[in-house]
Design a binder for these strands. Structure first.
Lengths: 266, 266
DNA sequence: ACTACTGTCACCCTCTTAATCACAAAAGAG
DNA sequence: CTCTTTTGTGATTAAGAGGGTGACAGTAGT
């Protein structure tokens, strides 16, 4: 019932800290200290349920990470850095690490990614599908045909389309309503709009995409009767590449038939 | 000998992926796939040394995260998203999570952080000390006195000083050479420069800081004979707060004596 | 001097995950 | 069509990390 916004600051913070690599004790200790500002091992143990004797280890771990300062007295006292400073610390560290990852990965990327002919690839999850679509947009050279329900036309997709358009790629966009069309026309001046190929919004269809007439993607919202009604993750897509690819052949036929009525295929 | 730049793209990427929460198998599998572009379980097993039978689990994990697509055929084939898309995926996810953390932590931050009177807090590590100094700069209300060796006067510190100056805080900066002083004057118009209190650059001293006459920090570069000569992490600082705090009293005396010679303290 | 508390250490137990194996289904060769 | 090889799934074992508990010497405070 209660999703991510702020269910319980305690647990939310603890969960994130753990996923950032802190031990459970360290995470709970830091959260306790963040509420207390300053405290002894006993204080921390009481509000965090961390065994008192283990608060010392946890605090060491936090001190090594620069999240907690230690007052050498008896009893020792501990001091947590501010929420803002802590967040920034993680932000920087993680930014660093993604940069390292990016550099390392691009080093070993293959020269030419082979373009498959046969078969159909699968992608699950709305976020992943969107990522894939954006990746394909970025590699487009001549033409992008994209048909989508409006809910899935997020800003990052519009950005990617806009960039492609700036590169000289021709954009053909379908499935969007009149008011949204106007907004799009501002962002992507060269885009051509076309009507839905069929009754689009009633079905649980997601998107249709064709790039340069040789790479296609279809997705469906698999909100089966079992899935939670508003779960944004339940999207499944398939895609294929290559002139002979079966999925490409089928979609190409559909789009061509609809977009160029005077050029019937044989 | 060979630090972070790019020792070995393989291991660097694997390490980062693991720290981002992937299992060792998943990390190695993804790196292998990133080099191959496309491959079967056998291919992956050969270049990654992941047992073939466990490539399937690893690939499932990666598929759930949206990093790998699966071609349902026999043998199954696997496809890795591009280095750029992968990096962006992580970037977004981590940005999201730091935002959640920031929100959660500031929710439970105490109303007023008690200002300690007695005792001295310790901080280790150059990064942590810098973070602490910045945090203190941000809370400054009237005056910042800061003396540092130039190596430690990084851009983020200058930014923080500049913001404080814009708030109307008076800045007194010491220990920097003439050429650097000029540059600083541009960024922080209102700053006052003063000479080093003593032969500063010869010692292994790090920084001296005083905020509003009631919070002070001292650091030293503990490059003992044992530590590696250029290790940037070997800095240790202590700080204290409150009018009665011993560290504050001592530093206040020193700074006042030097900065206001005509007002001798008693 | 006595009591309570603090900080350190050692230990056990559980859970995760790497690693190996067994086996049925599928593909390919002859 | 049969035999052999490969593929994918599952169960099982082993090792390590980390959570949880308790013993104990040193210290503070009465």
């Amino acid at each position: 019932m209660n999703n991510d916004p702020i269910e319980d600051p305690q647990s939310a913070a603890i969960e994130q800290l753990e996923r950032f690599g802190l031990s459970a004790y360290a995470a709970r200790t830091f959260v306790a200290l963040a509420s207390l500002g300053t405290g002894t091992a006993r204080d921390i143990s009481q509000v965090s349920d961390v065994p008192r004797t283990r608060v010392y280890d946890a605090v060491d771990e936090l001190h090594d990470r620069g999240l907690v300062d230690i007052l050498q007295s008896s009893p020792k006292q501990f001091w947590a850095i501010s929420a803002e400073t802590a967040s920034r610390t993680f932000e920087h560290e993680l930014q660093n690490r993604t940069d390292i990852l990016r550099a390392a990965l691009s080093e070993l990327e293959p020269i030419e990614r082979r373009t498959e002919q046969r078969g159909v690839w699968t992608v699950d999850g709305q976020r992943s599908v969107t990522d894939r679509v954006i990746e394909f947009f970025e590699n487009a050279e001549e033409e992008i045909v994209y048909m989508t329900v409006e809910d899935l036309l997020t800003d990052d997709l519009i950005d990617a389309l806009s960039e492609a358009a700036a590169r000289g790629v021709s954009i053909k966009l379908g499935g969007v309503s009149a008011p949204v069309q106007e907004r799009i026309q501002d962002d992507i001046p060269g885009a051509t709009m076309f009507e839905s190929l069929w009754v689009w919004s009633d079905t649980s269809a997601g998107r249709l995409m064709m790039i340069d007439g040789r790479k296609t993607l279809v997705s469906a919202l698999v909100n089966g009767a079992d899935a939670s009604p508003s779960d944004p993750r339940s999207e499944t897509a398939i895609w294929g590449e290559g002139d002979r690819n079966s999925l490409v052949v089928v979609l190409k036929a559909i789009f061509t038939w609809r977009l160029d009525p005077e050029t019937p295929e044989e």
